[in-house]
Amino acid sequence: MSVLATSDLTKRYGDELVVDHLNLSIAAGDLYGFLGPNGAGKSTTIRMALGLVFPDGGSVEVGGHSVFSSSEARSRALSRVGALVEEPAFWGYLSGRRNLEYFARAGGNKVDRRARLDDIDEVLRQVGLADAAAKRVKAYSQGMRQRLGIGRALLGHPDLLVLDEPTNGLDPQGMKEVRALLRRLADNGTTVFVSSHLLGEVEAMCDRVGVLVAGKLVAEGPPGHLVDEPDRVRVDVDDRRHALDVLRVVPGISLDELEARSGGGPGPIKVGLANGATPAGVNAALVSAGIGVSALVPEHARLEDVFLTLTEGE
């Protein structure tokens, strides 16, 4: 069952179509990366998922409950959701602990409120703010606010975490800790929906990625297989010219034209594989022609390259 699902979700601001018939389905335990250039509609989608912005069409379901059919359904849908929406915001005149306490008390049923209140100490420890909990939030650094924002989202062990740029303002150590925390939560069954501009971070952390461009989902899948492109291998050989001559006649193999015209001697060759061609076949062809192969490394396009290709022109 999907923990978060949108169906033909659409939002306009005036004449501008911000989210265009978006269909998402996030399964329980997924760590899902939501990517897109600025203005692609990510934040609007997140706000609709949290019931903050009303769609012009389509629907959103969280935990099987519609976010927009009635206020009771919305309450049920959002009761097991923790969120960090764009920058974290707090009542600056209150301490970190009081902020968590008052947000915990503010909504939901008695059981959920109790669970969130009981969780405050653990969450403060988890995000490394146990020692700063008594300080007023207006004295916090941006990184501390970000940690507190993540802490607020974690209160009560939500089934779904919706996090918009969760590592903003964190130092490298903090970013690493948050990545590990989110991975751990997902491994323990929490569904995590995370929007981030840091593609390397998303690639390292997420099980699945969706790319939104101009309000439309243009690609979705595991970070290494976002687009349907041929597999590639890098082959390190002792005689490039000879190797290129051999590979040109092997079925299903493609070579970079510039590379194919380059000189001989030892070095790497990038080989595209299609129509049943395999790394083992490449190796066999080269070895049987007497060419020494010192390395054969499968290569996938990096998420950043794929993202830039998908969002070109935006």
Partner: peptide
């Protein structure tokens, strides 16, 4: 203005 409204509503606190 402070940005806390979205966190209250997402908690969720009913609008009415």
């Amino acid at each position: 203005q402070a940005g806390t409204l979205r966190y209250l509503l997402a908690r969720p606190v009913g609008r009415t």
